[in-house]
Simulated scan of single mutants.
Amino acid sequence: MSLARSGIAAAALTALLAPAPQVAAQDAAALKKEMVGQWELATTERSKTCVIMMKGDATPQGLKLELEPGCAKALPFTKDITSWNIKGLDIVRLQDAAGQPVIDFTEVESGIFEGLRSGEGVYILQNLAAARSLAKSMDQMIGDWSMVRGNGQTVCGLTLTNTEATGDNFQVFLKPKCDPAVVAFAPNQWRLERGQMILMSAKGESWQFEADDNAQWRRVPDTADPLIMLRGQ
């Protein structure tokens, strides 16, 4: 290979491996644009919530935001939040007056961001309209349910409540004459999380159910003899 060709090949390889700052800037700019609007900051199952209006107007440290009056009482750390910004390609940062992070969020699903505060746990940042739709879904979950086999045989009756248990979980009660496998599991708490109904026991075990439709939830992973949750039977 000639020196000229060698030089061309090396230059091509360098260009191929080089980062694309313009694309990165476009990604960050697109995310910044998408974040302008009303968002709900909440614990994982919305037992404590705060509405944030994220704006596109610049501040000395980032971009403007407004927090609803009840935020500091519901989530005390929000009293330090004065602005927001995008860091890197995909980090949504809520920051203090010095521009330091109060909490950083990354997108885990379309329109749903998670952030972790050390010693406190995970918080969710979600479009306000979508979050209120989830709240309506949770309200619809309250009441009596039946757990049945795939053949329609009822194995247990349960009542899901909106009474707070531990963390962001709510109390669930078994009715008499449940199948021994359900009694052994002994769920006493439940929550909705990322489209799943999760039943939990005091022993730390959990069963996950995903919706087939508005009234039927199937245990996952699926099996040849599935367990299905049905409303009010």
Rank of each mutant, 00 (worst) to 15 (best):
K203Y: 01
S146I: 13
T43P: 02
D213E: 09
V108T: 10
G70M: 09
L227R: 12
T159C: 06
K64G: 10
T49N: 00
M53Y: 03
T106L: 07
K87E: 10
W217G: 06
A12L: 11
A184W: 00
I86M: 06
L128G: 02
K87F: 02
L17S: 14
S2Y: 01
A30Q: 15
D80E: 10
P226W: 06
E45A: 09
A186R: 09
P60K: 08
G157Y: 01
Q140H: 07
F170D: 11
A131V: 00
V36M: 06
S146L: 07
R219D: 10
A4P: 00
D168W: 05
D144L: 04
W84L: 10
K33N: 12
G204F: 02
T163C: 02
Q126H: 09
T154L: 09
G121W: 06
I81A: 08
Q95D: 01
W207V: 13
S110Y: 00
K177A: 14
L3N: 10
Y123P: 01
L160E: 05
A10I: 12
D80H: 10
R132T: 01
T78N: 08
P19F: 06
W39I: 02
I81L: 04
D168L: 06
L16P: 00
W84E: 13
R132F: 04
V182L: 14
T49E: 10
Q189S: 15
A129M: 12
L158E: 12
T14E: 15
E66N: 12
E68M: 07
T14D: 07
L63K: 09
Q216I: 14
T59R: 08
A11R: 15
L3G: 12
Q153P: 03
W217I: 03
R5L: 14
I52R: 02
D144N: 14
R117Y: 03
K48S: 05
E45F: 00
G119C: 13
A29S: 14
N85S: 05
L125S: 03
Q196F: 01
G195Y: 07
I142N: 09
A130D: 11
I81T: 03
I52G: 00
T44Y: 04
K203F: 01
S146K: 14
A9T: 09
R93G: 02
N151L: 12
P69H: 07
G115N: 04
A184L: 11
A184Q: 15
T43G: 08
V51K: 04
L174C: 10
N162T: 08
A29W: 03
W145I: 01
A24P: 10
E120K: 08
Q233V: 01
A211P: 01
L13F: 04
N188A: 07
F77I: 05
N127K: 13
A10T: 12
D213C: 08
I52E: 01
I198S: 08
I124E: 05
A11V: 10
F209L: 06
M200P: 00
Q189I: 00
R117A: 09
K55D: 15
